[in-house]
Design a protein around this nucleic acid. Structure first.
Length: 284
DNA sequence: CACCATGTTCCTTG
DNA sequence: CCAAGGAACATGGT
C-alpha cells in the first residue's frame, strides 16, 4: 500500500496503538518476508520487547524496540513493498490468507500481511544506509538535487525513483510532481536547470505534504477488510469525494484532458513502469 | 488468455 | 569500477 504518504500516516496510526506494548510471541509465516533475518533471531530478540517509538525514513517504518532487563534498544524495520499492510486485530479474528509475520500482543495480533510478498520485516537498520536524502528534510533542496542528477543521462522520471538519489518518491508521485513542476519526464536528468531543480523540489514537497494531510483526515481501515483500505491516493475512491480537495492530475488518466491545458494526457513506459504526463504543460 | 499493478534487488551488458 | 536495462519476485484485478 505504499508511497511515502501512506507509510507516514500508517506509522502515526501504529504509534498510537503500539507504544509501550510488549511482544509476547512471534509467528513467521513466510521466511522470505523476514530475509535475511532468521525466524529464530526474530523470536529471540522480539519476545518480551516493547515498542518504544515508531518513525519513518523514506518508505521504511522504523520500530525502536526496548528489550526487557535493561538490554540495549534495537531496530525492527518494516517495508510494505507493493501490497504490504500492517494493522492490529483481536486474536479472536482469523488471520488473513497472506499473513507474513504476526507479533502477538496481549489481546491483539500485530499483523504484517503481504499479498505479493515483496515487503519485509527485518532486524537492524542496515537497509537505510544506501538511501539518499529524505524528501521532507531541511537538507534536501534544489542544489542537492541538482548535484545528484548532474552526471546522469537517464530520464528525470527514472532518476526520481532511484532511492539513493532521493529517498521516498514512488511511481505515482513521480508523475504528479513532474507535472506540477512543468518538466517532461523524458528530460535527461543532467539537463535540468537550476530553476527546474528548485521547482521540482517544491513540487515534490507540496505533493507529498498535501497527500499526508489528506490521508490524515480520511477514516482509514488499515486492514483492508472494507472499502477504506489504507490507500488514499487522490481520487481513488468515489465515496471519498467529500474528503479530498485535490486529486491526482495525471496519474492513471491516459487520454483524459489535462486539467490545466486540455491536451490529452499521455502514458509512456520508462524502465518497465508507466509514466503519465501532459505534453502541453511538460515540454521536452 | 493478456496485460496491468503503490517496489526493490539481482544479473547481464556495455 | 560504473551506468543502464531488463528480468525476477508472487498474487490478484480487469
Amino acid at each position: 500500500m505504499p508511497e511515502l504518504p501512506e507509510v507516514e500516516v500508517l506509522g502515526r496510526h501504529l504509534g498510537s496503538l503500539l507504544i509501550n506494548k510488549a511482544v509476547r510471541s512471534v509467528q513467521v509465516h513466510r521466511q522470505k518476508s523476514i530475509r535475511p533475518t532468521s525466524a529464530r533471531r526474530m523470536r529471540d530478540q522480539l519476545v518480551g520487547a516493547k515498542f518504544k517509538s515508531i518513525k519513518r525514513r523514506a518508505k521504511y517504518l522504523i520500530f525502536e524496540m526496548q528489550p526487557a532487563g535493561g538490554k540495549p534498544v534495537f531496530i525492527l524495520l518494516g517495508h510494505l513493498g507493493m501490497t504490504g499492510r500492517m494493522y492490529l486485530q483481536p486474536k479472536t479474528v482469523d488471520l488473513p490468507k497472506h499473513a507474513a509475520v504476526v507479533l502477538e500482543l496481549v489481546r491483539h495480533n500485530f499483523i504484517f500481511e503481504d499479498t505479493r510478498y515483496f515487503g519485509r520485516m527485518t532486524l537492524g537498520a542496515g537497509a537505510l544506509d544506501t538511501l539518499g536524502p529524505e524528501l521532507l528534510s531541511e537538507e534536501f533542496g534544489g542544489d542537492v538535487l541538482r548535484e545528484a542528477l548532474s552526471k546522469s543521462a537517464q530520464a528525470i522520471k527514472v532518476k526520481l525513483l532511484d532511492q539513493s538519489v532521493v529517498a521516498g518518491i514512488g511511481n505515482i508521485y513521480a508523475s504528479e510532481a513532474l507535472f506540477h513542476a512543468g518538466i517532461s519526464p523524458r528530460k535527461a536528468a543532467r539537463r535540468l536547470t537550476r530553476a527546474e531543480c528548485a521547482a521540482l523540489v517544491v513540487a515534490i514537497r507540496g505533493t507529498l505534504t498535501k497527500a499526508i494531510e489528506c490521508g490524515s483526515t480520511v477514516p482509514l481501515d488499515f486492514s483492508g477488510a472494507g472499502e477504506r483500505n489504507g490507500l488514499f491516493y487522490f481520487g481513488q475512491t468515489d465515496e471519498w469525494a467529500g474528503y479530498y480537495d485535490e486529486e491526482l492530475l495525471v496519474y492513471d488518466r491516459e487520454n483524459e484532458s489535462c486539467a490545466r491545458c486540455g491536451n490529452p494526457i499521455r502514458r509512456i513506459v520508462q524502465v518497465a513502469r508507466s509514466t503519465y504526463y501532459c505534453p502541453g504543460c511538460q515540454r521536452a
